[in-house]
Amino acid sequence: MTTPQPAIQAKGLTKTYKPRGGGPVVEAVKGIDFVVKKGTCTGLLGPNGAGKSTTMKMLMGLTQRSGGTLDIFGHDAAGLSREERTRIALVPQDDNLDPDLTVSENLMVYGMLFGISRAVLKDRVPQILQYMQLTEKADARVNQLSGGMKRRLTIGRALVNDPDLLFLDEPTTGLDPQARVMIWQRILELKKQGKTLLLTTHYMDEAQRLCDHIIMIDHGKVLDEGSPAQLIDKHVKKHVFDVTKPIPLDLPPVDSEDVGDSVLFYVEDGATFRKKLPEDATYLHRPANMEDVFLRLTGRKLRD
């Protein structure tokens, strides 16, 4: 049996560009390899300027790659046919909705851009509005919507062509907790329907909750990849103790990291380590998460 064809396959993918107005050539992506399997949700994580957005743009054909190969459904991403493009949709980082149109007109026009007939859209648009809880706003103008509503509409717009492959670029940035939970629910439902999702986010809890597979990139290179559990196991231990300074001298030699006012201790066995801590020590004990992995892999220095 041959392995099933992946949804996306990148090999040695690079992107360089000359900044407008001069300056040295910038290498945004420096040869990355990754695979996105069909029917999974894959997270592309990294700090600002790591190369996530550039990679997303190359996938969408919105910028040309400088080298390597990038295939979607087994075809070159830069030269997808009209039919192949109708199977893909994008939720961009900023809402680029059409401010001159109403909510339902936005969906209508976007559907027609995918070549869907008006008859089909007359049924589908109200369904999407209901699914994204926007039915009451059908005839409102885009600039009358709140930030959360705009985001829901942008996601709804990406569903208008019932895509097999969906790119979500920071889908919940700037939203309140209620809206985030609602959008997470929808994303998990889409995964259940068998769609392939590629997600970027700065929220590590979001990545941990939604993604089957995570690719960490920084400075245009892949740092590591794997399932959230695998990555946590590999780079930090199961438990984190955030111990406020001064640090007791007689602690066992475990994996630790000085973060200024306190030191983080990564340990496999939480109960044993706690017993070693003096009575009067100030500390916080929690399970390790993707945030720890992220900061360990990419460092704590500010990026922009």
């Binding site: 969408m60 919105l62 493009r85 976007y110 851009l113 995918f114």
Partner: peptide
């Protein structure tokens, strides 16, 4: 400004 072209270019147009 509205970034409509990138939105449209994400379709077959």
């Amino acid at each position: 400004s509205y970034k409509l072209y990138p939105a449209w270019l994400a379709t077959p147009v």
